[in-house]
């Protein structure tokens, strides 16, 4: 929840930058353009992280280990809809993130630390949602069947929380690094 709040506060603060026309902007020019590029770096990373976690989930746990079931038929309607929406969104996010990344690179606007921070936070957030809401509350499917699932659940969600925390730290230091650079220039 804290993470969501932080993201919302950030979005509000930076609404002006989002609408900014970056087609002609120089990354190290105005503060506004630089912050907008940083924000887009976080966004691209977060979309990629979300897609990446969903991809790992699909290939490793569904296809290779066969721990997860395609559909275990006890799923409720809401669970099925949530699963479908997340599947579609993560599929879209993975490809969109690559295009956003190339766009940032060709405009020289990529903030690498913010991108990795966004990736960890986005991937962690999706994993936490999957682990708590989709597996436990909606019971779409479990991590593994015919074993004591508790250690798997704990590991799953602790890794997710650690990813979010590491992501937020990286995003913060990305901001500080930028502030230091800009401060240095001004002096």
């Amino acid at each position: 929840m804290l993470f969501v709040e932080i993201m919302i506060r950030r979005t509000r603060k930076q609404k002006g930058f989002l609408a900014m026309d970056l087609n002609h902007a120089k990354p190290n020019g105005s503060n506004g353009a630089s912050a907008a590029f940083r924000f887009r770096s976080i966004g691209s990373g977060a979309l990629f992280g979300l897609g990446f976690v969903a991809f790992i989930d699909e290939t490793v746990f569904h296809q290779l280990l066969h721990w997860h079931h395609f559909y275990d038929k006890s799923t409720t309607g809401v669970g099925l809809v949530s699963d479908g929406l997340f599947h579609a969104f993560s599929w879209f996010a993975t490809l969109a993130a690559f295009f956003m990344l190339s766009d940032l690179r060709r405009k020289n606007g990529l903030n690498a630390m913010s991108w990795w921070g966004g990736m960890l936070a986005g991937g962690g957030a999706f994993q936490l949602y999957d682990g708590i809401i989709q597996h436990k509350l909606m019971e779409i499917h479990q991590i593994r069947y015919n074993v004591d699932v508790l250690p798997y659940d704990v590991a799953w969600n602790v890794i997710a929380a650690a990813m979010i925390a590491a992501g937020i730290l990286l995003i913060r230091s990305g901001k500080r690094a930028r502030a230091a650079r800009n401060g240095g220039k001004r002096r």
């Binding site: 395609f70 559909y71 099925l80 809809v81 699963d83 479908g84 929406l85 599947h87 579609a88 879209f92």
Partner: peptide, 21 residues
């Protein structure tokens, strides 16, 4: 259009699982 595309993709994958069951 991205939003519509995502909703349509979701509709397709939900329908696949519905047909499965």
């Amino acid at each position: 259009r991205a939003l519509i595309l995502i909703l349509a993709l979701a509709g397709h994958s939900i329908l696949s699982k519905y047909v499965y069951a």
